[in-house]
Design a protein around this nucleic acid. Sequence first.
DNA 1: CTCCCTGGCGCC
DNA 2: AAAGGGCGCCAGGGAG
Length: 549
Amino acid sequence: MSRVLLTRRGPDVVVVRDLSADGRTVGLTEVPAGSLPRFVAGREPARPRWVWDDTTRWYPQLLAAGVRVERCTDLRLAHAVLRRSPFADPALLTGPDTAGWDALEPVSAAEPALFPLDDPADGLDPAAEHERQQATVAASPQRARLGLLLAAESGGALVAAEMTHAGMPWRADVHDRLLTELMGPRPVRGARPAGLERLVPAVRAALGAPDLNPDSPPDLLRALQTAGLPVADTRSWTLEQVDHPVVGPLLEYKRLSRLLAANGWAWLDAWVADGRFRPTWLPGGVVTGRWASSGGGALSVPAPVRPAARADDGWLFVVADVAQLEPRVLAGMSGDTAMAEAARAADLYQGMVDSGAVATRAEAKIGMLGAMYGATRGESGRMMPGLTRRYPRAIGLVEEAARAGERGEVVHTLLGRGSPLPTGAWAVPAGEEPDGGLSAEDRGRERRSWGRFTRNFVVQGTGAEWALCWLADLRNRLWRLGSGELTSRPHLVFFVHDEVVVHTPAELADEVGAVVRTAAAEAGRLLFGSFPVDFPLDVAAVGSWADAH
DNA sequence: CTCCCTGGCGCC
DNA sequence: AAAGGGCGCCAGGGAG
């Protein structure tokens, strides 16, 4: 496969290097920046891997010009992975501008102030960085896994740019109607909607606090305590435990007030334009390898507004999510055949019950979540001995990850993403002076807390790798289902950790459903080879996102 | 005034 | 006696 490296020379010229398999430059061309899309489109039929400093600095402009590419290497993301990977030799990755690569941030269309003038990326040498990265992977004892991780990470970068380009279809009129039905028509700026305002006197009266501002947690807490309620905070869960006339109206107020603040009319104004919601997706934005997002809270769109996400006329959403991704991933990465057997069922937790490992589905779920999050007490903690007996390899893997974290060691995902080193005062190496300000108890608590983080890291991070492989493979399969530009074919519009939304012409929905499943099976094969662990999907073809679950 | 922290809560 | 992982975002409120 050929590789083509793109670099900028000033604002107007792009330097194109054709690279040999060992990374040497075998061809050099200069292209005016304005004709880059035409150039890339002309080369794309040969299916090169485009190598560039950072997908966010190249791909949005190509997409805007109607050009889609099949694959790339994103040096920024690859650098971040390699810098922390226990599978990579740091000496091979180190160069004169390593600090610059460490510090390189993605750019977003929403804040173009830095770009293209004065971009720190322009002080870096992508050709040299690419050579270092190639050498690092080639020398790795796990180069297949590491290579897969870098390819998947880069594929994710392409998906992210394409999803922002296409946007999630979003009906502002439907959203406005939902809000109006729940809390009355849109008020003038700064005022409470009538449906919310109506609840304030009820709360004040029930607490005997005529001037209370229910939006101020400290004031609210004082008023609750003054009224004699045994609460130490104002959380909804706490209030639900209390029997008092204020609870009903106050919980209702909090529910509506939250919706108004997070996804009300101001959210619509800020994030929905031309019938599309376009968040900025940040692949690799979380230490575990999960994506983050900025703008509009894309990863936490609450259920009540999802009816506003509606496919275009003649189009459908194919919504797919994988049930119990993380315990399945744990079964695969630990090679635990008993857990993989339970994972053969569409419902892994029911599979655990059917095999006699646990008595009820609820116990299976709480036990597994506790194992992966590090619960040691309560119902979840009490289940650990039984789970350990039944699934020694799976439980053993997360336990060992926790112990390693408590020793201050790095843990890693299946494909080699490394955890950060602890920075807390508890982690001072033996022999050095511990922080005088931290008691032995505090140190123990922080040490265990870091162990819970590393315990979860290996599972959450490997789950993210499965999802990346799924996404990257699905993207190319969707492209082959249609013709014309990206948004006239079936295309991804949303991704939330273990769920995808594809926007597709209605007549292709069945085929989309099939390739979503094929891509999931392929992701399982890429990560776990022939080890028999299944990743069954819930797939629905719907007019609205809200109808999927 | 701006900056930063916290409580609270939405998602996985 | 609701403990236990990862996020982003908002409003309030204190610090500078």
